[in-house]
């Protein structure tokens, strides 16, 4: 059995310590180790965006990040978006604009959209489409997702 490493990081604003094996991805540790199952696995090879999280404010696919790499860094997942019980404007906009069906891509879409709005508070439709190209949604055809991001950016 591989020896485990102790990792300290800030996850959704909270100081967190966990043990992980060196080959474990951040996605696996979030979901199986820390119980943060809001972040989803659709491919485990960087091609669907369902596992999107923010790492020090940057959008990453958590399936492509090793858990040991987040030592001393800060991670935001979908569970960290709302200032409970107040939903994040993007979460509200997604709910109100029917921007989800199965909802499996939704956590990743929300995180990716937040990364976009943090950089560019009023993106055009083309900018939204380009930014979200790494996040696959098979249910919605993206239409209502793009509109929800537009709605949230108006706030």
């Amino acid at each position: 059995m591989t020896k485990k490493t102790l990792v300290s990081a800030t996850i959704n604003g909270e100081e967190t310590e966990f043990l992980c094996e060196p080959q474990q991805s951040l996605l696996e540790v979030l979901r199986d180790g820390l119980g943060l199952t809001g972040t989803k696995e659709g491919c485990n090879d960087g091609n669907c965006g369902a596992c999107s999280v923010l790492l020090d404010g940057r959008l990453v696919n958590s399936c492509l990040v090793l858990a040991v790499e987040i030592e001393g860094r800060s991670v935001v997942t979908v569970e960290g978006l709302a200032e409970w019980p107040r939903l994040h404007p993007l979460q509200k906009a997604f709910a109100e604009n029917d921007a989800l069906q199965c909802g499996f891509c939704t956590p990743g879409m929300l995180i990716a959209s937040k990364a976009l709005l943090d950089r560019n508070p009023h993106p055009t439709e083309a900018e939204i489409r380009a930014w979200l190209a790494g996040n696959l949604c098979r249910c919605t055809g993206y239409d209502k997702i793009v509109r929800a991001v537009q709605a949230a950016s108006g706030e």
């Binding site: 972040t39 997942t77 569970e79 709302a82 939903l87 979460q91 997604f94 709910a95 029917d98 909802g103």
Partner: peptide, 13 residues
């Protein structure tokens, strides 16, 4: 809003 919307946008579903 769909009845499952809140659970899904918060990652709790």
């Amino acid at each position: 809003p769909r009845v499952d919307a809140a659970e899904k946008v918060t990652g709790r579903a």
